[in-house]
């Protein structure tokens, strides 16, 4: 549905986006991650046709964004960063306008507005002026605008920004549900949302894609991925460490904590594997001591994020 090819955007000498390519199909939810100023919003503005790329191409549903902008824009629902909305209107007036400009009239418009109001929990502020809305409600109003015409493509720039925990949860659920039938791109700084809602994630840093994969694939890039953490009692730390080093494939062992006769240690394999063979080997090696806990680490997204984006800054 969305295809981005070698997208570049220069602001003066500054390369805000520098050769980004990816595609999002129907039924996919793509999480867009990256540090501040990485170029997420700029990329989204080019996808939605607000700013022209310096180089590269965007097609939405087969329509080139710069050659057939109207046909392409019809397919998109867009929540811009900071959720702008016309402050001189009521929430209802604003949503009516959004529906009408999407070609919905009469009963179709009424149904569409009611549906969006229900999905975004806006009943209580329907007749309130947008100007006096709290930040979270304004965000929800703008979000409602983006889904009002039930578009096959959604581009959401930080959709959960400023929402309370309950609403964050609602929006994630909504994105996941809608993602079954739509092609969705959303940017976020909250890494749990990647697990909660995305089928795939892209990390971009200084205008370039530095990682692209399913949440599990990204987590596997973590140093922690594949390590085994265990808690054993009735043994000294160095004794346990020595035993763990004897296990085939162990690269490194660290003792995380040792107190009251209990040792918490972590063993890293030379080559991480997810089938649990290494964990079983560890389990067998420590038999005879009392094992209180033993688990295989999946890896952590925040660690991957930090490693990828920091290492780039230091270069």
């Amino acid at each position: 549905m969305i295809k981005v090819e070698q997208l570049k955007k220069l602001f003066g000498p500054k390369r805000a986006v520098d050769g980004v390519s990816f595609a999002v199909e129907q039924g996919e939810v793509l999480g867009f991650l990256g540090p501040n100023g990485a170029g997420k919003s700029t990329t989204m503005r080019m996808i939605t046709g607000f700013i022209p790329p310096t180089e590269g191409r965007v097609t939405v549903g087969g329509h080139d964004m710069w050659e057939q902008p109207i046909a392409a824009k019809r397919l998109i629902g867009y929540l811009p960063e900071n959720a702008p909305a016309y402050t001189d209107m009521t929430v209802q007036g604003f949503l009516n306008f959004a529906a009408e400009i999407r070609g919905l009239r009469g009963d179709a418009r009424k149904t569409a507005v009611n549906r969006a109001v229900e999905m975004c929990f806006l009943e209580s502020v329907l007749h309130q002026s947008v100007e006096t809305l709290s930040k979270g409600y304004r965000h929800r109003t703008c979000f409602a605008q983006s889904i009002i015409h039930d578009p096959p493509v959604l581009v959401l720039d930080e959709p959960t920004d400023g929402l309370d925990p309950n609403q964050k949860h609602e929006v994630r659920t909504l994105i996941r549900t809608m993602g079954k039938k739509k092609a969705i791109i959303f940017s976020t700084h909250i890494l749990e949302e990647v697990d909660a809602a995305c089928s795939r994630a892209i990390i971009i840093d200084r205008g370039r894609i530095v990682a692209n994969g399913t949440p599990a694939e990204l987590r596997a890039q973590s140093e922690l991925a594949g390590a085994v953490t265990l808690k054993v009692s009735g043994v000294a730390g160095n004794e346990l460490t020595a035993r763990l080093y004897q296990v085939n494939g162990t690269k490194k062992v660290t003792v995380l904590e040792e107190k009251d006769g209990r040792v918490l240690a972590r063993a890293f394999p030379k080559t991480p594997e997810s089938n649990g063979a290494y964990a079983r080997a560890i389990g067998e090696a420590v038999q005879g001591w009392r094992i209180e806990e033993l688990h295989l680490e999946e890896g952590r997204l925040d660690e991957v994020f930090r490693n990828i984006t920091l290492s780039d800054t230091q270069k």
Binding site: F50, K73, I76, Y78, P80, P84, Y86, C142
Partner: peptide
């Protein structure tokens, strides 16, 4: 206010 971004990404 930023509504320009909204207006010009609508199909108009």
């Amino acid at each position: 206010v930023g509504t320009l971004e909204l207006l010009l990404t609508m199909p108009v």
